[in-house]
Simulated scan of single mutants.
Amino acid sequence: MTTIPSPAPIRRRSTPEELEALPLLPPSATGLAEVVRRRYLLKMLVRNAIQSRYQGTALGWMWSYLQPAIRFCLFYFLFQVMIGRGAGMENFAVHLFAGMVMVHFFTETFNGGTMALVQNRSLITKLAVPREMFPVSRMLVAAWHTVPMVAILVFVCVLLGWTPDPAGLVAIVLGFAITALFGLALGLVFSVANVYMRDFGKVAQTLTQFVNFSVPMMYPYTLVHERFGEPIASYYLVNPMAEAVLLIQRGFWTGTTSDPAYTAGIHLPEDLYTRGLVMTLIALVCVVLAQRLFSRLEARVPERL
Rank of each mutant, 00 (worst) to 15 (best):
L297G: 09
L281K: 03
R131N: 08
T280D: 01
I248D: 08
R53I: 03
P23N: 10
N48H: 09
P68E: 13
L78D: 03
I266C: 00
V211Y: 07
M82N: 00
Y54F: 13
A177S: 13
T109L: 08
Y76A: 14
L32P: 11
I50L: 15
G175W: 02
V46E: 01
P9G: 05
V278K: 06
V224G: 11
M115R: 15
A193M: 13
A290H: 01
I172M: 12
L297V: 08
C73I: 14
V118K: 13
L19R: 14
F72N: 05
Q67N: 15
N111F: 03
K202V: 11
V285Y: 05
A58W: 12
V215K: 10
V150R: 04
E230G: 05
N111H: 07
R71D: 13
N91G: 07
L305Y: 11
M89C: 00
L74D: 06
K126Q: 14
L96T: 06
F252E: 08
F79S: 06
P220L: 14
R38F: 04
C157A: 15
F228R: 03
L305Q: 11
G201W: 02
E298D: 14
G88H: 10
A33K: 06
A128C: 09
Q209N: 14
I124R: 04
W144T: 10
M102D: 01
T254M: 13
E17W: 07
E230V: 13
M133P: 02
T114M: 10
A290E: 00
V170Y: 01
N91I: 01
T257A: 05
P302V: 09
L19S: 08
T206G: 15
I232Q: 05
A49Q: 10
W253Q: 04
R13N: 08
V192H: 00
G88K: 11
T208M: 09
I83C: 02
V154T: 14
E270T: 09
A69E: 11
Q55K: 08
M241F: 15
S52L: 12
F79G: 06
M218N: 07
W63P: 07
I178T: 00
L272S: 07
P27K: 05
L284M: 14
L78T: 10
G86I: 10
V195H: 06
F228S: 05
E18W: 00
A290K: 01
A204N: 07
S295A: 15
T263L: 03
E132I: 07
P260D: 12
W162C: 03
A128I: 09
G265L: 04
G60H: 12
A242Y: 09
N194I: 06
A283Y: 03
L19W: 04
G60Y: 12
A21F: 02
E132C: 07
G56V: 09
L45R: 06
G84K: 12
A233V: 12
Q51P: 00
L78S: 03
G175F: 02
G84A: 11
G168I: 04
S295E: 15
V211H: 06
H267W: 14
Y54W: 12
S137C: 10
Y40C: 00
F79H: 09
R85F: 07
G99E: 08
A177P: 03
R71G: 15
N91Q: 14
L207V: 11
P68I: 12
S137K: 07
